[in-house]
């Protein structure tokens, strides 16, 4: 059952700087629970930094983030799955596909515990969801970009979270992989999970997302249900161009 009134993530006046460059400026937003939420904006607008700031992967200069209206990150970290950009890791690292998905089961295995057959079975179950079960014993370097993304997604699914923060999961992948990923995300969403995803393809925004957070140069331009905020004016504003977009 969806509870779409609750706020799953509340950012209050976030400020993040990389050296002298201010990436997030007084960034505030309320994201509702149970939605497929798209974060859109031009390159360098602070979309990925916002997700990293939420997870405290980058230092936050000031501001506050609350989850489910009252909890801080430490209290709910295990309810959140974060999927980094694919190019953030070294794909030549000596690991198999199964090893990567097993990382997502850290809540069960612990960081010092032993991997047991039941953990491997569970990891295979999540690999099957993204149609990668036949690749379990393959070295991750042998995979295509789309397959790597699916493995990353299987790891995120294995975390069995309530909130999924995905940094460009559809970047640089083929149509088949995109279909598999979106299908899985929509299924998760139908089970009541919240999906927050950095997205770049304008033509699929209205199809994939029920709610949008539109960003420009580290500031929130607007947020709201897709049908209300996905307008030519807003798109022109976030991308900083005058050309009209064709919105279906």
């Amino acid at each position: 059952m969806l509870s779409k009134n609750k706020i799953v993530l509340q950012a209050k006046n976030l400020q993040v700087c990389y050296g002298n460059h201010q990436v997030l400026k007084d960034f505030s937003c309320d994201l509702p629970e149970g939605f497929m939420i798209g974060i859109i904006g031009a390159n360098g607008s602070g979309k990925s930094t916002f997700l990293k700031a939420i997870m405290r992967i980058v230092p936050v200069d000031s501001g506050e983030v609350l989850f489910w209206e009252k909890y801080n990150l430490q209290e709910v970290r295990h309810q959140i799955a974060y999927l980094p950009q694919r190019n953030s890791v070294d794909w030549d690292f000596p690991a198999t596909v199964l090893d990567v998905v097993l990382m997502g089961l850290y809540k069960e295995t612990g960081l010092f515990g032993k991997i047991r057959p039941k953990h491997k079975e569970k990891a295979l179950f999540y690999l099957e969801k993204v149609k990668m079960q036949d690749f379990a014993q393959k070295h991750i370097a042998e995979l295509s970009g789309g397959q790597q993304q699916r493995v990353f997604l299987a790891r995120a699914f294995a975390q069995e979270a309530q909130l999924y923060l995905l940094d460009e999961p559809l970047a640089g992948i083929d149509a088949v992989t995109e279909e598999i990923i979106v299908e899985n995300l929509q299924k998760l969403n139908s089970e009541g999970k919240t999906i927050v995803m950095v997205h770049h393809q304008i033509d699929t925004i209205s199809e994939y997302f029920q709610y949008l957070l539109m960003i420009r140069q580290g500031e929130v331009i607007t947020s709201g249900e897709t049908k209300e905020v996905l307008t030519n004016e807003n798109l022109q504003q976030i991308y900083g161009i005058k050309q009209a977009f064709v919105i279906q």
């Binding site: 992967i57 974060y82 690991a95």
Partner: peptide
């Protein structure tokens, strides 16, 4: 964990 994917490690 930390050698393969630092960002993921920090997120957990």
């Amino acid at each position: 964990f930390t050698s393969f994917d630092r960002t993921f490690s920090e997120s957990i």
